[in-house]
């Protein structure tokens, strides 16, 4: 039987009087490519941080890879990879040094880490840049390195928090292809947050989040059919009563 990779029951988080996440019930299956769609401030990052044990829930509970995120926080963190919204690399270290630093934090012995690092550098197109300081890398390459580092310890669940934010369209596309290849090769569970509908489109299932509440959940096709609309953008509008993206001032 396949256990749920992620399971949230009534999960919620308040920051003072602000209700960041109201009440989330969610189940993500093993190997699923799960999209978490919502505008900025919907509670996506809060949810990811709760599931990654970086925040303590105000109410409810969650299990990730079978571990309770509050009680078994170390095991939870060992089973997940997390790519934060902003890069968390050390810019003064080289590409390789960043990976080696992470390998030690994740307690991988050198004989396991060295071949794994070489493999990831190849896979992520960073082999030639491995001795360069991160400072010298372009945004797309930094992001690739962030993800490579998240994959270093072969996590069961990979959280990607707005991984393409701040990237130009070309870097975004190549990162996207990389993710698809990675998933095809490993059967990894991916939990992706995004505010771009085109990124939610290829997901197996999508949860639509708005103002800390789950507005809809299903495959992209199901969501569109149920709302009687053609695009996920319209699904969002139909379910929440307001558009996903504020019209830009320009």
């Amino acid at each position: 039987m396949t256990a749920a990779a992620i399971e949230a029951r009534g999960l919620g988080k308040d920051f003072g009087s602000i209700r960041a996440l109201d009440h989330l019930d969610l189940e993500v299956r093993e190997g699923e490519f799960f999209g978490f769609l919502g505008p900025n401030g919907a509670g996506k990052t809060t949810t990811v941080h709760l599931l990654a044990t970086l925040l303590r829930p105000t109410r409810g509970a969650a299990r990730v890879a079978g571990y309770d995120v509050v009680r078994d926080d170390l095991q939870t963190r060992r089973s997940i990879g997390l790519v934060f919204q902003e890069t968390t690399l050390d810019r003064d270290l080289t590409v390789e040094e960043n990976l080696r630093f992470a390998a030690r934090l994740w307690n991988l012995p050198g004989r396991v880490a060295a071949p794994r690092i070489a493999e990831l550098l190849g896979q992520f197109g960073l082999l030639e840049r491995r001795r360069d300081r991160v400072r010298a890398l372009a945004g797309g390459m930094r992001r690739a390195l962030d993800i490579a580092r998240g994959m270093l310890h072969e996590p069961r669940v990979l959280f990607l928090d707005e991984p393409t934010a701040g990237l130009d369209p070309r870097a975004r596309r190549s990162l996207w292809e990389l993710l698809q290849r990675l998933r095809a090769a490993s059967g990894l569970t991916v939990f992706l947050t995004t505010h771009y509908v085109e990124e939610a489109e290829p997901c197996d299932r999508v949860a639509v989040l708005d103002r800390g509440r789950l507005a809809a959940l299903g495959t992209p096709a199901e969501l569109k059919r149920a709302a009687g609309v053609q695009s996920l953008e319209d699904v969002f509008l139909a379910r929440t009563g307001h558009p996903l993206a504020e019209p830009s001032a320009a």
Partner: peptide
């Protein structure tokens, strides 16, 4: 500020 601390905090260590 650079974000490195967050990466360290998500590592499976106390």
């Amino acid at each position: 500020d650079a974000g490195v601390l967050r990466m360290v905090l998500v590592a499976p260590i106390r």
